[in-house]
């Protein structure tokens, strides 16, 4: 092969860069023109950007946080405010209606009710589902919100109070009650008897008359003579099949008497606000257990 034929340099008037490595040279093609123009364009764009948007840090800046503000005075906080006001205005009509309607009346207004349930559902998923389950099904130590058994009451009013101020929370209006550890007072024997009696109550069998006396003496003040519970103290109903800790077997009941467990529910009023709580109340009520 004739090397001169293979040398592009001689076939083209482009020329080389002048660099040479072991006889290998490099053609000196210019950058494509479209590329050059776009490159220059981006520089111009950047200058415009500095002018319009916040860009440069300012050394002296005693009046400005961060740097230059740009003529549009754009900040992410303003953008947030705008996008929030957009969604708020979309919700405003229903939200305003919701604010001016008592929770009881919402139940009679199909559209507003739908709005409240949907809003409540999403707030529930984010804030409540971690303990009560995503469908309100509850977990050990956290009540099922679907059933008809309520510790503190399942009416709209009671639900609202529970969600707002919580149970044994830091809030000053919180619901509060403590079951005292009774083992020391009662003695081991009597704890076993009462446990068996209570387990029987739950199963509907009254044959275990043993322990009834101790129960009446120690427990009935809060849990009721027949184990019907008392919502003023949040004392659970003992005569039904629904148990917060375990399945209502004797050992469970015994351990609860010896060292009582107490659930805590945070107060949500400062975190979520009246409107969201109203929606949550309607949603929880709609799960089927509302009273």
């Amino acid at each position: 092969m004739n090397p001169s034929n293979n040398n592009i340099e001689t076939q083209d008037d482009i020329g080389t860069t002048g660099h040479e490595w072991d006889g290998i040279t490099e053609l000196n093609y210019p950058c494509p023109r479209w590329w050059v123009w776009i490159f220059l364009g981006t520089i111009v764009w950047a200058v415009g950007y500095w002018y319009i948007y916040p860009a440069w840090p300012v050394i002296s800046g005693d009046s400005e946080r961060g740097g230059t503000k740009g003529v549009m005075e754009w900040t992410q906080y303003k953008q947030l405010e705008e996008s929030q006001s957009e969604i708020f205005s979309r919700r405003a009509e229903n939200l305003e209606k919701l604010q001016n309607t008592s929770t009881k009346d919402v139940m009679d207004m199909p559209e507003l009710y739908e709005f409240a349930v949907v809003g409540g559902k999403s707030a529930f998923k984010e804030n409540c589902a971690q303990c009560h389950g995503s469908g309100g099904g509850g977990a050990k130590g956290y009540p099922n919100l679907n059933d008809d058994d309520w510790l503190w009451g399942g009416s709209l009013k009671e639900l609202s109070k529970t969600i707002k101020y919580g149970i044994r929370s830091d809030h000053k209006n919180t619901r509060n009650s403590v079951m005292p550890p009774l083992a020391a007072v009662m003695g081991k024997d009597s704890v076993t008897k009462v446990s068996r009696y209570v387990a029987g109550l739950s199963k509907g069998s009254s044959s275990t008359a043993e322990g009834a006396k101790e129960y009446k003496q120690m427990c009935s003040a809060c849990h009721g003579v027949n184990g019907e519970g008392n919502r003023i103290f949040g004392a659970p109903k003992l005569s039904d099949g629904i148990w917060l800790y375990g399945k209502g077997d004797e050992q469970q009941i015994e351990s609860q008497i010896k060292s009582p467990q107490h659930g805590v529910m945070p107060a949500w009023i400062d975190r979520l606000g009246e409107d969201t709580i109203k929606q949550l109340v309607v949603y929880v009520y709609s799960l089927g257990g509302g009273e």
Binding site: A129, G263, V264
Partner: peptide, 20 residues
């Protein structure tokens, strides 16, 4: 902070899937 109760955190650290 303050969103969940202490006992939830305890149980959740021990077995997260129990609650979520």
């Amino acid at each position: 902070g303050g969103k969940y109760s202490d006992s939830w955190h305890v149980q959740h650290m021990i077995n997260p899937q129990e609650y979520v």
